[in-house]
């Protein structure tokens, strides 16, 4: 009886501890979200905020349209570069990368994931900005693509590994070439998981500031030409928040809110898609 009581007590204590730490882990997220919403809402309430671009301090009606456009265009180009290469890389790792070559690529991917994003920005600067003597959206897109690539490769690899080997065997037993089975049977079956990885990479790239500092540089007017300097949401937040003017700081909060919501939507979409993958993999 005594022992039972002791067990119950220690169990209760452990439970309180575990719940407590989980709650502590959630506090920063909750605070960031709440604070951003609270501070950003006054900006977002005006429609001009989404329609207009930069206005000098003192003139009302400034907006972030140029930054939203820049972020969408640069992340879009980065995705076009990173997603196809990343998917093929992931397919390579599963189908052919069982040996030393595959391990090397996995290691390179892990290192790249850990590489400071400012270093990747410098790389893009040296490669695409310095030689041409001007900043550009393209150079920023390349920097973002380098950031996205390892994420896409590893999530593709993970998604394909969820597909049972029996599917591959069944395809090969029909006399189909290995690459065809991989690209036309396995990849479509793993599509939801692969899309999840791509969306996570997009969310990560959209929030990055450091790689844009000396590549996209920023722009005060709405520019849709990626060969010229471009604005971006994180850059805009970074630049406006440092200014002493309340008007600029207010717009920085608004832009931060827009960015957080965009990234949140991307993340939630990827979650939803990934659930479908798990449901699908269960049926195979």
């Amino acid at each position: 009886m005594n022992r039972n009581l002791y067990r119950q007590a220690s169990n209760g204590l452990a439970r309180v501890f575990v719940y407590g730490t989980a709650l502590v882990a959630l506090i920063p997220l909750g605070l960031v979200l709440a604070y951003t919403v609270l501070k950003g809402l006054p900006s977002v309430e005006h429609v001009e905020f989404f329609i207009n671009s930069f206005r000098p301090i003192g003139i009302p009606g400034g907006g972030v349209a140029h930054a939203v456009a820049g972020t969408v265009i640069m992340v879009g180009i980065a995705s076009l570069l990173a997603v196809p290469v990343g998917i093929l890389g992931g397919v390579y790792l599963v189908e052919y990368g069982r040996g030393r070559g595959g391990d090397l690529i996995r290691l390179a991917g892990d290192v790249l994931v850990g590489a400071p994003s400012i270093a990747i920005g410098l790389f893009a600067y040296a490669l695409l900005v310095a030689p041409f003597h001007h900043f550009s959206g393209i150079s920023a897109a390349v920097a973002l693509a380098v950031l996205m690539l390892p994420v896409v490769i590893r999530t593709t690899e993970g998604a394909i590994e969820l597909i049972p080997g029996s599917l591959r065997e069944a395809g090969l037993a029909l006399g189909l070439a290995r690459w065809r089975v991989a690209l036309q049977l396995i990849v479509p079956a793993a599509a939801p998981g692969i899309v999840t990885g791509a969306l996570l990479a997009v969310a990560r790239a959209a929030g990055e500031t450091a790689p844009l500092l000396f590549t996209a540089f920023g722009n005060q007017i709405l520019n849709l030409d990626p060969s010229k300097p471009m604005a971006a949401l994180p850059l805009l937040v970074f630049n406006y928040a440092r200014q002493p003017y309340p008007q600029a700081q207010q717009q920085a909060w608004g832009a931060a809110l827009v960015l957080v919501v965009l990234v949140l939507i991307t993340n939630l979409t990827s979650r939803f898609v990934f659930r479908r993958q798990i449901a699908l993999a269960g049926k195979l």
Partner: peptide, 28 residues
């Protein structure tokens, strides 16, 4: 590939492709 076309295989567990009935057979 020629060998495996000539020598088909049916596995222990049914392994339908995640496609329609028709597309499963039409795939190869």
């Amino acid at each position: 590939l020629e060998l495996r076309q000539k020598v088909g295989m049916v596995f222990q567990r049914p392994s339908p492709f995640p496609l329609s009935i028709y597309d499963n057979v039409a795939f190869a």
